[in-house]
Design a protein around this nucleic acid. Structure first.
Lengths: 151, 151
DNA sequence: AAAAACTCCTATTAAATTAGTCGTATATTT
DNA sequence: AAATATACGACTAATTTAATAGGAGTTTTT
């Protein structure tokens, strides 16, 4: 399970992606209300995303946050790593949060390690081919699909 | 990340799988020492596995735990679900621990839901094709591989 | 210049989950 | 009966995650 933090981050970034082409920025308060995220919690998350280089901010009245990268370039694995932590199921197969297993004398000999590596690869493959732009596009498609059903 | 519980469970079951054909049973104490798992913690885990129908137990002197199913039939997804909980990255795509997202008005319209479903399917596919027997076989192969390297 | 609308930053608290422990009852073998 | 196991419920500790509080610093609007 990814933490709520990460889910909130994805939601917030999706909002920002939707106004990207207009070069608009959105304030914490606006995003928080739109996405039903606790204001102060969202604040911390956006700060994290800023430090991670995904978003920029503008201070002062009429300020807010905006995407630095194109919505095509921001992928889910990226967001989750910045906010959530490991995607891998075990520390010994995590790229960014690696820790050896206490008991395992040789990682090379551990079959579980191997299997968990496979799982990680499969998960990351999907999560890093899906960008914010993809999410939005996909949502439009889902909407049209549902519309047609009701006709 | 799966909890330690689940990793301990896999280790313990692997031990039991290794003595399966001899119809032997192992005591908590023996497994705990062999695998460096806190004794009492392992006790709780084995109980969980027993309630889940994976192992049986025999009380009294010379008692212990043993596999009920064949090592071929016990797969990782099974073990993790019994001890750890969800494999899915979000509650809304979990088979056994499903909970709807608070905000999502229509799950059918949520692209994230879709992506996370894909991830779950990919993970479960791997985890449920890998059995205890596979793990052991795989470990033997890895060992031989390493041996050949050193020749 | 002052007020309003923002972000920025640090610290704290609250809640939930996970890890691990203790004591005792109960069953089985020797 | 003594020794060796599991069974079980209650409890504690540690860690992580979620959320809140308060105010300092910036920029825009009026």
């Amino acid at each position: 399970m990814i933490p709520k933090r990460s889910k909130y981050a994805i939601q917030a970034l999706k909002c920002l992606a939707k106004v990207y082409r207009d070069k608009k920025h959105l304030s914490i308060a606006v995003i928080a209300e739109q996405e039903q995220i606790p204001r102060k919690f969202l604040e911390a998350i956006l700060l994290q995303l800023r430090n991670g280089g995904l978003v920029g901010s503008k201070m002062g009245a009429n300020g807010g946050y905006f995407l630095i990268k194109h919505p095509d370039e921001i992928v889910l694995s990226n967001i989750i790593r910045l906010t959530g932590g490991p995607i891998a199921l075990l520390p010994c197969v995590s790229l960014n949060f690696y820790e050896p297993c206490a008991e395992c004398p040789h990682e090379e000999l551990c079959a579980l390690h191997d299997v968990m590596l496979e799982v990680r690869e499969a998960s990351i493959h999907i999560l890093s081919k899906t960008s914010l732009a993809d999410l939005i596009l996909r949502e439009k498609k889902l909407f049209r699909k549902l519309e047609n059903k009701h006709k």
